[in-house]
Write a protein that binds this DNA or RNA. Sequence first.
DNA 1: GATCGCCTTGGACGTTCGACCAAATACTAT
DNA 2: ATAGTATTTGGTCGAACGTCCAAGGCGATC
Lengths: 201, 201
Amino acid sequence: MGETSIERGRNARARLLTAARELIGELGWNAVSTRTLAERAGVRSGLVHYHFDSLQALLRHAALAEVQRMLDGTSALLARATSPSDGIERMLFDLDQYNGADPASLLFVETYLAATRDHELRQGMSALVADFRSSLTEALTRSGHPEPQAAASIVMALFDGFVLHKGLDQGLSAEDIAPLLRRVTSTEESRIPNTEEDGEQ
Amino acid sequence: MGETSIERGRNARARLLTAARELIGELGWNAVSTRTLAERAGVRSGLVHYHFDSLQALLRHAALAEVQRMLDGTSALLARATSPSDGIERMLFDLDQYNGADPASLLFVETYLAATRDHELRQGMSALVADFRSSLTEALTRSGHPEPQAAASIVMALFDGFVLHKGLDQGLSAEDIAPLLRRVTSTEESRIPNTEEDGEQ
DNA sequence: GATCGCCTTGGACGTTCGACCAAATACTAT
DNA sequence: ATAGTATTTGGTCGAACGTCCAAGGCGATC
């Protein structure tokens, strides 16, 4: 019942999204055009505005879907872990899959930046990041971490910053940040006494 | 001796660089055009290619100068510190000056990304980052840190990642990552025994 | 006051951009 | 076959883009 035609449409739409996912990382968010997008997807440029309201809407959709895919994958990794330290090792192994210069890594950072200038994208990203933070916080809570919320924020910032630096210095390896990560996520409280005021936030 | 004319030239050039510094953060690296640049600087667009070889060359120059200014400022901060923990507190205070959405923060990340696609910019950024890493490593060595090199890499990644996240969640404060930072940069070795293989890299 | 050199102007060039649309095509249901 | 619906095409539109350049301005030097 009208499926072959619709299926072709779905297929073209999917190819456009795949092309966007690749090109955002390769060229940068603002350098992706309707024409390069169509060429990569193997369709004519007019199709872009048939399947999507605008070029920005296409990029938003593709970027959010890919970020969700990556974060969900890492969440699943954590859920599958047999112990806290096992979860850390899995995340470190996962982190080394991104070399900081591949389309996936760059798409992540590009989306962060684009979100600061696109209200709708910002809301979508905030929601995804908040979800992941919850997963991570929950995992840390389960393992009895004294400050799961703070530790989750730190781990996420460290991971993203690490990917950023890796794009510049390919020599970096996840093993470089491993010692610290194991310390942060450990359940033992080995706090250093503060030298100044404390408690604000 | 022919200075008024030359001074005017220097002034126009400086205003172009200032405009570039602002606009890279406001609009994004790829969205800065010769015409918006000239308008912000209060000159005509033809001047861009008199003072610079190309638009990219202008952006490169402006970005590298600003990144150097920021990193040198932080290096000076460290050098002025009276003790290791004092240095950390100074860096934390400095970090809270950037809210993650201001032109300075965004220029930093934009330059990271642009460097992955521009060979000359990449070399310049690598040099600046390496210099700063040296300053930080030296400071950590002076304070007797057992692993100054690894700690420096971690602190830098954490700082940059923190700025990235702050652009999305304005609620974050430098105090959120302070406990960890104090731990990492402390001279005490409170290592957690590794659960898996160790020693590589 | 003529000459020189640097700085600046204003406009032109070819290209590419996002968006839009009428016509053509492909498939389904009657 | 026919009508109806969804997808695709190919092209146009005005605007903005980077780059370039001949001409003009303007203070310093002779």
